[in-house]
């Protein structure tokens, strides 16, 4: 059992998402940074799809009421366990009664708390993710509040080494596969989408200009601010299916990037689609930060996906070996 002692709004239970029901208008939901959630679960010996807490408003504080293991991944929130500082991307054993605190991160937007055995809430349509718009999943379909109590699955799969251990953050381990700009602007790779050609010569500015993530951004979508891009001539479109990553261009000419709680259908022209493997980076982008779209290809997207899968497989394989080695050495 864990008990929420302090929280802002919009912190929710999330797993990797709810799939197979878009035809019924059910959004996929799921973690905004799926990679951080996956790594967190691997560090505590969980299946990678177990439910965790997605924390995006701070400070956040909880007490554990049983011995367990927790991993903190995603944004570096200067986590502290009973006042002792923990590094980011870290897993550690926690004892009943200990208090874990997260502060507002200096960079990135969302932290994930994965507990051994996962957050024990009832699955809805195959997922424990909270759908805030639908009001179901997670903890009663709502965001966390002070005094909430959540069950956790069970004891850790591993005996944690003293002080715990961590994973190399993907930004460092996969630096060769994710472009970085010199001025800190987030580079997000995308491919042209169905209505790209309708923007004519205007479309070029979609790639060349720097966009700002506006305050009207949330888990449903990011509204970007910049010099508007207009259709060459007005068109009427039928509503079509929408998935996370789709970049729509409403009449205002400022793009909307659909995120984890993406609408299931929409009628705005689609200028581009963010490649799936870059969505976690967008999920960590903060309101007010700047980004630029980089034209990519399916081949590049697949190559990056393979690199990320190799990184995860490396963690999957190495965690049990490391824990076993430490246990042997501690007996010497």
């Amino acid at each position: 059992m864990i008990e929420v002692l302090q929280t802002g709004p919009l912190n929710t239970v999330q797993d990797l998402g709810r799939f197979g029901f878009r035809n019924a208008g059910v959004t996929s939901s799921g973690a905004m940074d799926r990679l951080a959630l996956t790594v967190g679960n691997l560090l505590v010996g969980n299946g990678e799809g177990e439910a965790a807490l997605e924390v995006q408003t701070f400070p956040f504080r909880l007490r554990v009421n049983r011995d367990t293991t927790v991993a903190i991944t995603g944004a570096d929130c200067d986590a502290r366990l009973d006042g002792g500082r923990l590094p980011p991307w870290w897993a550690v054993a926690v004892s009943a009664g200990q208090v874990l605190e997260l502060d507002t991160p200096q960079r990135s937007a969302r932290a994930y708390l994965s507990f051994a055995g996962g957050i024990d809430v009832a699955p809805v349509m195959g997922s424990r993710s909270t759908s805030l718009r639908g009001g179901f999943g997670g903890l009663d379909g709502r965001f966390l509040a002070v005094n909430d109590r959540l069950g956790i699955g069970g004891a850790g799969a591993y005996a944690m080494p003293p002080g715990g251990f961590g994973a190399m953050p993907p930004e460092a381990a996969l630096a060769d596969h994710f472009p970085a700009s010199e001025d800190g602007t987030l580079l997000v790779r995308a491919v042209p989408a169905g209505e790209y050609a309708l923007f004519g010569g205007e479309a070029e500015r979609f790639w060349s200009q720097t966009w700002k993530i506006s305050s009207q951004s949330d888990r449903t979508g990011y509204r970007l601010s910049g010099e508007p891009i207009k259709l060459a001539s007005p068109v009427e479109l039928r509503s079509h299916g929408v998935v996370p990553g789709v970049v729509q261009m409403p009449p205002s000419g400022e793009p909307i990037v659909q995120m984890s709680d993406a609408n299931t259908a929409g009628g705005y022209p689609k200028i581009a689609g963010v490649i799936d493997i870059d969505l976690w980076r967008l999920g960590q982008a903060r309101i007010g930060s700047r980004l630029r779209f980089v034209r990519s290809s399916v081949a590049e997207a697949l190559a990056v996906e393979r690199a990320v899968e190799a990184y995860l497989e490396d963690i999957r394989r190495t965690v049990p070996m490391l824990v076993q080695a430490i246990a042997v050495m501690s007996r010497r």
């Binding site: 590094p87 991307w89 080494p161 003293p162 002080g163 715990g164 251990f165 961590g166 994973a167 190399m168 381990a173 990184y311 490396d314 963690i315 190495t318 965690v319 490391l322 430490i326």
Partner: peptide, 9 residues
């Protein structure tokens, strides 16, 4: 050590 990080305490 590979993809993992151990603490020096």
């Amino acid at each position: 050590i590979g993809p993992l990080v151990m603490p020096v305490r």
